[in-house]
Nucleic acid binder design. Sequence first.
DNA 1: CTTTTTGCACTGACCAGTCAGTTCAAAAGA
DNA 2: TCTTTTGAACTGACTGGTCAGTGCAAAAAG
Lengths: 231, 231
Amino acid sequence: MTAPRTRAPVPATEAGPVTIRPMESSSTPSGGSTRREATRQKLYEAAVTLIAEQGFSATTVDEIAERAGVAKGTVYYNFASKSVLFEELLRHGVGLLTASLREAAEQTERDGGSKVDALDAMIRAGLGFIARYPSFTQLYVAELYRTNRAWQSTLMVVRQQVNAAIEDVLHAGVANGEFSPEIDVRLTAAALVGMVLVAALDWQSFQPERSLDDVHSALSRLLQGRVSGDR
Amino acid sequence: MTAPRTRAPVPATEAGPVTIRPMESSSTPSGGSTRREATRQKLYEAAVTLIAEQGFSATTVDEIAERAGVAKGTVYYNFASKSVLFEELLRHGVGLLTASLREAAEQTERDGGSKVDALDAMIRAGLGFIARYPSFTQLYVAELYRTNRAWQSTLMVVRQQVNAAIEDVLHAGVANGEFSPEIDVRLTAAALVGMVLVAALDWQSFQPERSLDDVHSALSRLLQGRVSGDR
DNA sequence: CTTTTTGCACTGACCAGTCAGTTCAAAAGA
DNA sequence: TCTTTTGAACTGACTGGTCAGTGCAAAAAG
């Protein structure tokens, strides 16, 4: 059998772990060419809402292209595959989130606040982020605990990035004497993430009219154990 | 074109009464025939793990059937569609969870415990449930905040069921004087759910060797504001 | 007790449709 | 000129759902 001249559909070896294509869009180390970057941004935005609504598998590349207002070919010109687009989107979004969290903690630090204050500020920052990018948050939560997926590793890295930002403050607080040395840093961080995530999603989904301050104070009360009693 | 594939037979003619198939699977009001129920159970179990791992859309009916050890047609004999199978699975699982939560609260009640104790018992019950059905929990979290989906309404009902169990205790505690009247019951309940959900998922995914007691005490500490200080 | 009938539960090949990914010539920037 | 985008055509694989047909245990008939 000889290769039919027109098409060259993947030779024999199927086991190829890596896509053979010449492309390699994912580079763009810095600078980012002007036009290209704008297109990618549009694709991110289109993809994030669609995937948040329907999930990754249920979202088609055609839909993403249409929503972004570009041709399907453009998607593949800018990203090696649907999965790669998704992975880069994840990294992009979580980068923004962690930056925001760390910034909040550092700001508190600079103002001479305590570690609880830092945690509180991070909760607020988290809520702010979720309010600004609700779709991204949905998508993050929805994909976070899936296993057996192509982007497993990306997800792990990204999750760790977020949790670490909180764990750092917790650790500092323990070293500080401000927090009990008996707290379980890892679990407490996870619990705090969950608290903010689910409460914020509830807020956005079912009571979007409420203010950030309002929601923040409810969580703040929980964080500081001001639920029982009323000191 | 007739040409029956491999099998022969059964002469044509079937002028008999046009029984269009007995269909009507989803009923089974009570008793339910033994065999049928066993098959449905196997399908639930197969579907829950697969969907937890891959998500609803990425999971095929063929996979579910194969994992359950039945033919594809059997899936459709027992459930009207893939979505219906999923919806019934959701209702089934959440039914178990809420029963467990309410039972825990009532037990505390009977023992003359406080409302914080009830909340604490519910956290423990929640953790226990998640430890027993981690896949179901993954699936629940992953699909909970999706919009534009066929089973939207089922999800809402089911979510409300869980949250209400917690809100009830919170309300009772406020009426009781045990909780500050300023707490936001709705948001606090959501936050507690998130706290348990994410912490437990973290536990199951990354530190499965730890004991329930261990995890419970970490969350308990957070609930009771015993994080800062060490009273 | 033996034979026949009934109908539920299950089967799996099949179909019509869908999707990710590819290709490319031509147009549009810059 | 060089880069980026377009848009439509195509493919190969896969998917949800269907349906004619099978197996079997219990009821009915003899």
